[in-house]
Write a protein that binds this DNA or RNA. Structure first.
Lengths: 218, 218
DNA sequence: GTCAAACATTTTGTATACAGGAATGTTGAT
DNA sequence: ATCAACATTCCTGTATACAAAATGTTTGAC
């Protein structure tokens, strides 16, 4: 039924960090967490180790583990890499995508369109995710797919924000259509370029938004 | 001075796996490893967890940890992703590389040339690594650099083999020159394309070599 | 009053002890 | 002889105990 205790702790902790429940530099005390989850320190330590590997937590020897929310620079870097990874997925997918997957892509896109017309940002967000994940999968490269999913997940909280921008959903839709078209033509370069631009715009929009929001220091 | 025990174990284990000291499906018994390294099970477990995250070890719940050498399919996938990552590095580096780094690149290339003329494969291998790592760094994206370094390291044992092929060093050199030229012109697409091809060829050569070597099953 | 040193406290890192599940071997029946 | 059920044993996962290091506090000297 349930997996290892350490894994459940890992998931919960990850959620708590991504949700922003834990502040940025906040210290993650092992015994406190252990008590909070009602387990011993051992599974907590395991979870922390993995979070370090995932980049969510920084560990200083003999000092402890600290939440490590990405700063502006790292966010830009993550969006840049995301754009490159997705471009690569599109490049491969252009020659490898199946007809069924192309249909699924179009279907997802139509659901996106419906969400735009209903002005349903949540719905759009969900279907957009489906759209992108199909392309990851259709890269035909399991490793690339994994890496893309990993970073996608990491960027989730930040990507969501930029949909609030006026007209962003509509623009995003147009970009989707261009991507599908390029994939249909099996034009690897065009597909890669379209997806790269699509994601890069997300990064820029987010950056813009963050700049307007924050008056606090970096 | 010395880091955590668990980290040294991690490094040693990683080395042993990459060196092929441990067979593919080989089981990694915790107590055996603990005795071998003269420590308790705790740091060994930590190291194993991290190796799982790194993809070198597979863990089945309540069953144990097993060495997970990549099969032919995964190797191809890794080389493909490596090519894409390096292409991305080149793309960014084209506009971000410093003049000093360009000089270093040319210098490394000259040392490569010297190694070719001396027919010194080991020397070439080393300088080639320097060459590539400069480009990773000059992508100006720390995350991308890290990812590239990670996969580079993972592919190390497999990349080395293909240098044995007749004329490969000379061909590789020519490709290096093309890369440097594109970077000098700040031509992002050309640089990306050149590096992608350069790495892809490595993958193909390796694949070719593996096919001729192995009569054993996959 | 301030600075420094020693001590106490807290917390990480490691070792060991304990519990439950999986695999293997044995025994009995058909 | 083969198969199945059971018992034993081994190993993983978790808890706890111990050691060392770092931080904070108190006390004493200047």
């Amino acid at each position: 039924m349930d997996q290892k205790l350490a894994d459940t702790i890992l998931n919960e902790l990850e959620e708590l960090i991504l949700d922003g429940t834990f502040e940025n530099g906040e210290r993650l005390d092992e015994v406190t967490l252990a008590k909070r989850f009602g387990v011993s320190r051992t599974p907590v330590r395991e979870a922390l180790q993995k979070l370090v590997l995932a980049g969510l937590v920084e560990q200083q020897p003999r000092r402890g583990a600290f939440v490590r929310q990405p700063g502006p620079v790292e966010l830009i870097e993550m969006f840049e890499v995301m754009a490159e990874l997705e471009a690569s997925c599109a490049r491969f997918a252009a020659s490898r995508i199946s007809d069924e997957a192309l249909d699924e892509l179009r279907a997802a896109n139509q659901r996106c369109q419906a969400a735009v017309e209903a002005n349903d940002a949540d719905r759009y967000y969900e279907e957009n995710e489906v759209f992108h994940k199909i392309i990851y999968r259709q890269s035909g490269n399991g490793l690339l797919e994994q890496e893309a999913l990993r970073l996608h997940r990491r960027l989730k909280p930040f990507r969501r924000v930029q949909l609030r921008l006026r007209g962003r959903m509509r623009q995003s839709m147009a970009e989707h259509l261009e991507i599908v078209e390029a994939l249909t033509r099996a034009d690897a370069n065009a597909a890669a370029e379209a997806l790269r631009a699509h994601v890069a715009v997300q990064g820029e929009k987010f950056h813009h938004l963050a700049a307007t929001f924050k008056t606090s220091a970096a």
